[in-house]
């Protein structure tokens, strides 16, 4: 038995420069599915057969959040194979799930390593793991710890999580950290269409288009709770509308030598395209949040997506009209 324990790889609670570099690369969306930890059982500190067992995903950000929160705590870390996906998303997919947990408990022969029969899971593993099923199949009782690993030391004092520890928030810093990935996701259209517009029509159309995208992927995540109305689409229409009005005014001021017909056409383009693009990107931010439901997002799509399409299509028609007008007249 002791022999088996010696085979288990040891990890520390210290994060190194290369860990931080790996986190940074993950946060800007590079090699998104390659931030892997080998699944299996690990030791942290000097655990005994009475020590706690903590379960996590094999995503470096999840694993490192857990081990760095266990400073001065002896225990075991059981890493499930979630294909490099974080706990909550993997639980939603089912890879951080009952079957995988049961499999890993059996594979690691956990019952021979610890004398007790309880394992601590992150609360957000809940959508994938049926605690009573795990108990039935392995004898181990699943205890749901706090949402965030950083609250574990407090939780361990009396095996109790406060309502605050059990709630998922979406604070400004949680939203800010998502912006790089959001930008990287839109980088191709941003650069491609932005450049084409710049060299064909000039700086203002290029800036107007880029702003509609940046409003959706940068301003929207920041301003989310302060934008009025409950729906992401309507919040996006409002934000995009503000950007559109700014560019509409700029267009009229800068191109004031143009004919009234041309100014009207181009202003309509700005007022229709920018809000529809920003609103569409805002609607797509639902998946990055911690609180939108399937029913709600479905309802949003049915209600507002057709409006986005019509606005955008209208804007494109006026855009073509403005170009034809410029060429022909």
């Amino acid at each position: 038995m002791i022999g088996k324990i010696e085979y288990i790889q040891n990890v520390t609670s210290e994060l190194t420069f290369s860990n931080y570099l790996d986190h940074f690369i993950a946060r800007i969306g590079i090699k998104r599915d390659k931030h892997l930890v080998p699944p299996g059982l690990y030791k942290i500190g000097n655990p005994s057969s009475d020590s706690n067992v903590f379960v996590t995903a094999n995503y470096t950000l999840s694993f490192d959040a857990l081990r760095s929160s266990l400073k001065g705590i002896d225990g075991y870390i059981l890493v499930l194979d979630t294909k490099g996906i974080n706990v909550w998303c993997a639980a939603g997919k089912g890879t951080f799930g009952t079957d995988e947990l049961v499999k890993k408990i059996k594979e690691s022969e956990l019952e021979k390593i610890v004398d007790h029969r309880k394992i601590i899971l992150p609360q957000l593993g809940g959508p994938g793991v049926a605690a009573h099923e795990v108990k039935n199949q392995t004898g181990f009782r699943v205890l749901y710890g706090p949402v965030l690993a950083k609250d574990l030391p407090e939780y361990l004092k009396n095996n109790k999580a406060t309502p605050e520890m059990r709630s998922v928030n979406f604070r400004l810093k949680d939203r800010l950290i998502l912006i790089p990935v959001e930008i990287v996701g839109m980088l191709l259209p941003l650069i491609l269409i932005g450049t084409i517009l710049y060299f064909t029509l000039g700086i203002l159309p290029s800036l107007a288009f880029s702003s509609s995208i940046l409003a959706g992927v940068v301003l929207f995540p920041i301003l989310l709770p302060w934008l009025p109305t409950p729906n992401f689409s309507t919040k996006g229409f409002i934000l995009g509308g503000i950007v559109a009005i700014i560019f509409g005014i700029l267009n009229i001021v800068i191109n004031n030598y143009s004919s009234l017909v041309f100014l009207t056409l181009t202003t309509l383009v700005v007022l229709l395209v920018i809000p529809s693009v920003t609103a569409f990107l805002s609607l797509n931010f639902t998946g990055a949040t911690t609180f939108t439901s399937k029913s709600g997002v479905k309802k949003e799509i049915y209600t507002f997506f057709p409006k986005m399409v019509w606005m955008f299509a209208g804007g494109i028609i006026f855009f073509i009209g403005s170009i034809l007008y410029k060429i022909l007249i």
Binding site: G126, P127, V129, A130, G287, T289, T292, S293, K294, V297
Partner: peptide, 24 residues
């Protein structure tokens, strides 16, 4: 948010929810 955690962890099947991703 219809994550489904309560339904899955309810041993007496007292909770139902049509769970899934709230992601457009």
């Amino acid at each position: 948010m219809e994550c489904g955690a309560c339904q899955l962890n309810c041993p007496t099947k007292a909770i139902t929810v049509d769970s899934g991703v709230g992601c457009a």
